[in-house]
Design a protein around this nucleic acid. Structure first.
Lengths: 222, 222
DNA sequence: TAAATATAATTAACGATGTTAATATTTCCA
DNA sequence: TGGAAATATTAACATCGTTAATTATATTTA
């Protein structure tokens, strides 16, 4: 019985790995049972011995990608000084991750919830994706009273919405047309959102704010 | 020659009308050449005598829907007193339009730009969709110095991104789960964005702001 | 070890899809 | 009225997701 489980897990792994590769390189439009099975080295019908349907398979990848995204952001921002500056860098790195893998962005935010049976677990992962990526930063800012408890939920929500909107418009090739302009927009957006409650901030954050706004306000994430 | 043009225009009209009906009722996933042609009362191949392909047809609908959206918002907000309050009501009505016709939201923001050959005209319509809907309000606020010239572009941009992000997360059934909660979020979002530069506002807007914030901050758009 | 059984993998098939090529029909003018 | 031009339709092809039938493999039993 143990062998069987192991083998089944391995088989599933092959298909999941193949699906992830396709999602990353060619995007969700290139996903097909035959395509996945090809890459996994099996016939397309074999897939159905291990997965209910293609969506079941596709969305098993979500958690994996979220973890990968968190690692990516962590790696990209490890040199940043903790606080608002690192928070901003994390958000920019988060954006960069999806620019690098637009197929994963599609999977997270474009593909309809109904397509994967509205699984609550996956919905939660996606909904809180940015929050989790920035979790350390939020907690640090809270602990050191850089951001007030009363403001933090609104901040998180605003940033979540804005970042997704920004990415949607850029990735779907609507606007802006240039990458450089997009980065400028991203910076402006984050600065503005994080500055929302400027007049309510305590001294610690005012210091940070001043420093940020005096520097050239464009952090290169390229 | 004149007859021919007229007839061609009529034929195109039949297909466009059919496409619009399907987009509104069943959404873009229900779009197919056979489906459209059925509704138009012709064979599916006839469609190709008048349109290059199915995307060409689908995206001819964009401008029509934008105009319709503008009318909808105008109608919904005609009783509101001009200024910030009407601006907010317009944004909420804009949101309501897409809640009512999620298929049109898909068409505007989800469907990839590449799918309709990156036509700049259509890209512009979509990119500036919210701005145009609120155009009268922005101009009024500017004229009466309720919003400063220096802030207006940032405000527009922020709102554009936030509103799209909000709608994406809700329409794809991720979060929030309840419509009432969604409306609360929408209100909070708009209030927060429009209050961004509170400390920079002149008296006219401070008055408006105070009034808004003293009232229950939830405008029912249902 | 050989036969019987259970399991896993594959091919065949169905109803869709978008699009093109080959036909059939209608329209219009000499 | 005949024939040319325009227009509409059916046939066909290569895709797609999914299921059923079939074959190959592995496991168990005699």
């Amino acid at each position: 019985m143990k062998n069987k489980e192991l083998q089944e897990k391995r088989m599933k792994g092959y298909f999941i790995q193949a699906t992830k590769e396709i999602l990353k390189s060619e995007g969700i439009k290139a996903i097909s049972v035959r395509n996945i099975a090809d890459k996994a080295g099996y016939s397309y019908a074999t897939l159905y011995n291990y997965f209910k349907d293609i969506n079941d398979l596709v969305f098993l990848c979500v958690s994996d990608f979220q973890a990968e995204c968190e690692s990516f952001v962590s790696e990209q921002t490890k040199k940043e000084p903790k606080g608002i500056k690192k928070l901003k860098a994390s958000i920019l790195a988060y954006i960069k991750y999806f620019i690098e893998y637009p197929g994963i962005f599609d999977l997270f935010f474009i593909t309809k919830g109904g397509d994967f049976g509205n699984k609550q677990q996956i919905i939660d992962v996606i909904s809180n994706s940015l929050d989790r990526v920035c979790n350390i930063d939020w907690e640090y800012c809270l602990k050191h009273k850089i951001i007030l408890e009363t403001d933090i939920e609104l901040l998180k929500t605003q940033l979540r919405y804005s970042v997704i909107g920004l990415l949607i418009l850029y990735l779907n090739r609507l606007t802006p047309k240039l990458y450089s302009e997009f980065i400028t927009q991203a910076n402006r957006l984050i600065d503005s959102e994080l500055g929302i409650k400027y007049e309510n901030l305590n001294d610690a954050m005012k210091d940070e704010q001043t420093k940020i706004q005096n520097s050239i306000i464009s952090v290169n994430i390229g």
